[in-house]
Design a protein around this nucleic acid. Structure first.
Length: 503
DNA sequence: ATGTGC
């Protein structure tokens, strides 16, 4: 039996098995590339430069096993959004473009004890109140009006800073990756310019695909895991999607420029200068890792401060205490990060990552796991899964479009073997922002969501609504179906929007 | 994503 193939523009993928497609090594590719997708999604993925970019990433030094594109993949800056690349910490590299401009863009979900009926006929009031109290849109203005010293502390301490300043409770830290603080953060490696941009953006959503959404749980697919996550049908939850704002953007930019200047030799060997990478062990690799971890802490504080403000908004609207409404953080996931983690990789005679004929065995290696538009999805039993969820696997939160709904998954049994413990991060764009604005008119999109689905959307800019219209996204059910079928992230629950605010 | 650019 011959395997099926898929011909895209300039590249042929071979099907390894259902939902697993491989671009074999040719030329200077260090490893093969894999796309995890149904044929329909692969068709969409092959529409833009995603596959070419994915192939390019296999040229990065020290990349292990294979470069991976998730079912929601689309083109990004150098490295595809929906991409995972794991590079050896001793012999590989770290690459800002493979983390993304929005360092620690991510999602958190907060539970409540409210049900959909508690909200009905209150939607307008709630969406207005959220919009009035949660800063959004481009530019400055956050919930906390900080100075550079505040930013320094946030960069070093993450959510611990929020706890000290009344924007968090102890329990919030226990339900966040790394308890909301990367120890390896080095605020001194974040530029003054980045800190200046961050100081008036503490607690702000930003623009683009960032949003805050009140949702109702429509389905619980796995009763036991649903119970462990505290989710049941008809329950109201709140989803917050945002990142590190101008601070992270500036940090990414700063290091891209430094790498271009200081590591020209490596850059000239790469097929795309947007993949600029600092060689493992170099001063710049260490500096970027310290700065990136600091920006990660900033983004966690950003989501934390927003979430805590949402509690206060609900208190005013429903005239009950947030504790009484059981507004507890379910989990916070980062989907634009690099992290040092240990994974089993194919190694050559010198013990470093290898492929093909050079492979002599499999060993645990420490890797910079780059997840850009990809979510960590560690399975049950993994020591890095917080205690509350260790028996069932870590929660994975997958936002769909504002008209389609969202998923909660749990890290699957096969994720460590197949994807360095990762799965998708969302529905994934189908078309560019420019194209979206030609196809849709914000006001019409808003009206339709309101009339057809009782979804209340409020935005700073109509253009943003057009850019984020449901039709510009892939089918989130299809994306999640692939994750579930591969056993990298299993379906637990589905939610549907009620109120949505955005930039 | 982004005080919407290389």
């Amino acid at each position: 039996m011959t395997n099926r193939t898929f011909d895209a523009d300039g590249v042929t993928l071979e099907q390894v098995r259902e939902h697993v497609w491989e671009i074999p090594r040719t030329g200077d590719m260090r490893v093969p590339a894999r796309v995890l997708a149904s044929e329909a999604l692969l068709e969409e993925i092959s529409d833009d430069k995603t596959l070419e970019q994915l192939q390019n990433t296999t040229h990065l030094p020290g990349i292990a096993n294979y470069a991976i594109c998730m079912p929601d993949g689309h083109q990004g800056y150098g490295f595809p959004v929906g991409g995972v690349g794991a590079m050896d910490v001793e012999t590989g590299c770290i690459s800002p473009g493979s983390v993304g401009y929005d360092i620690n863009c991510g999602v958190r979900m907060m539970r409540t004890s409210l049900t959909y009926s508690d909200l009905q006929d209150r939607e307008e009031e709630l969406v207005d109140s959220l919009f009035a109290n949660i800063p959004s849109g481009l530019g400055g203005g956050g919930i906390v009006d900080g100075d550079v010293d505040t930013v320094e502390e946030i960069l070093a301490r993450g959510v611990d800073w929020a706890l000290e300043h009344g924007h968090a409770v102890e329990d919030d830290l226990l339900h966040c990756e790394d308890e909301g603080m990367r120890e390896e953060a080095d605020p001194s490696k974040v530029s003054q310019k980045a800190k200046d941009r961050g100081k008036n953006q503490i607690g702000s959503l930003g623009s683009g695909n960032h949003f805050l959404e009140v949702q109702r749980v429509t389905d619980v697919f796995d009763a036991a895991v649903g119970e462990a996550y505290g989710l049941e049908e008809d329950q109201i939850v709140v989803l917050i999607h945002c990142g590190s704002r101008g601070l992270g953007h500036q940090t990414c930019n700063d290091y891209l420029r430094k790498i271009e200047q200081q590591h020209r030799g490596l850059l000239d060997k790469l097929p795309d200068k947007e993949l600029a990478a600092a060689p493992a062990g170099s001063q710049l690799a260490e500096d970027y890792y310290g700065a990136m971890n600091a920006a990660i802490n900033f983004a966690w504080v950003n989501r934390q401060v927003i979430m805590h403000r949402v509690r206060k908004v609900f208190e005013r609207v429903f005239d009950r205490s947030w504790e009484d409404m059981e507004m507890e953080l379910l989990y916070d996931v980062a989907h634009n990060i690099a992290k040092k983690e240990y994974h089993e990789v194919d190694v050559g005679p010198d013990g470093t990552p290898a492929v093909g004929d050079e492979v002599v065995g499999r060993e645990e290696r420490e890797l910079y796991v780059h997840r850009k538009g990809a979510t960590r999805a560690f399975p049950a039993g993994h020591p890095e899964v917080p205690k509350a969820y260790r028996d069932v696997g870590q929660p994975v939160i997958i936002p769909g479009s504002m008209g389609a709904g969202n998923y909660v998954l749990r890290g699957g049994e096969n994720s460590m073997e197949l994807t360095f413990g990762s799965t998708a991060h969302g529905a994934g764009r189908l078309m560019s922002r420019t194209q979206a604005k030609n196809e849709y008119w914000g006001g019409d999109v808003q009206q339709q969501l309101r009339d057809q689905d009782q979804i209340y959307v409020k935005a700073q800019s109509g253009a943003t609504v057009a850019e984020e219209a449901p039709g510009v996204y892939k089918d989130v059910d299809e994306v999640v179906g692939v994750s579930d079928a591969l056993g990298i992230g299993d379906k637990v629950a589905r939610t549907f929007p009620v109120c949505n605010i955005k930039g």
